Simulated scan of single mutants.
Amino acid sequence: MIRVLLADDEMMIRAGVAAILGADEDIEVVGQAADGREAVELVLGVRPDVALLDIRMPRLDGLAAAAEIRKVAPETAVVMLTTFGEDEYIARALGEGASGFLLKSGDPRELIAGVRAVADGAAFLSPKVAHRVIAQLSGERLSRGAAAREQVAGLTDREREVLALVGSGLSNADIAGRLFVVEGTVKAYVSAILNRLGAKNRVQAAIVAYEAGLVGG
């Protein structure tokens, strides 16, 4: 069972998202918060697998809440859920260690897919957000590619192989199947890769993989 905490200052939004998630037999909403501070406190109390956070909330906004959650409960994956798709929000959310970014205007199936993906250790961006991120990276790739290749050069051949698969959006289970190893081995590789790259999560590692040319785009 995937345990999810939902934070949004609009009660109707919380009710709607909770209803969508509750329709999936493998997902359980274990807590709801009306602001970012309450979300952080609830995460510490219920230790959910995934925290779905709206960006604009009182007391503590979703981006600040995401940063705190990643510090105090790193085992909880953070997904930003918002009506805002501006690049500044996307960049800040990923910079704070969010594993996913979903738009409220998206297909409800994206919500389910996103929660399942990040709970399984992968990253998930709604198609509209992914398009904007890739477009931005394409414009900066030449200038940032050299630095990324230097980072990747410090990895072993196997670590680069795992990083390329992470950059392709595969979960730990998928990578294990692809490489014919146990999932625990993949987790150890991913942890080592994140440490060596100085990346907060798989999304940031995937960006390095893209910029270094390990993933086509």
Rank of each mutant, 00 (worst) to 15 (best):
M1T: 12
R3S: 11
V4A: 07
L5M: 11
D8L: 02
A19L: 15
D24M: 13
E25D: 15
E28K: 10
D35Q: 14
G36R: 04
R37E: 14
E38S: 12
V40K: 00
V43R: 00
G45I: 05
G45S: 15
R47N: 15
R47T: 14
L52P: 09
M57C: 11
P58D: 08
L60W: 06
A65I: 08
A65E: 05
A67T: 06
V72F: 09
V72Q: 12
A73E: 07
A73I: 05
A73Y: 04
A77M: 07
L81Q: 09
F84N: 14
R92K: 13
A93T: 08
L94C: 06
L94F: 09
G97N: 04
F101E: 01
K104V: 05
G106I: 07
E110V: 11
A113C: 05
G114S: 06
A119S: 15
F124C: 04
P127A: 08
V129A: 01
H131I: 11
I134A: 09
R141E: 13
S143A: 13
G145D: 05
R149P: 02
E150Q: 08
A153R: 13
G154K: 03
V162L: 07
L163D: 02
L170N: 00
L170G: 02
S171G: 11
N172M: 13
G177E: 15
A188T: 13
Y189C: 01
Y189W: 13
I193Y: 07
L194R: 13
R196H: 09
G198V: 10
G198P: 00
G198D: 04
A199Y: 04
A199T: 11
N201Y: 03
R202P: 01
V203D: 00
Q204F: 06
I207F: 03
E211F: 00
A212I: 00
G217W: 10
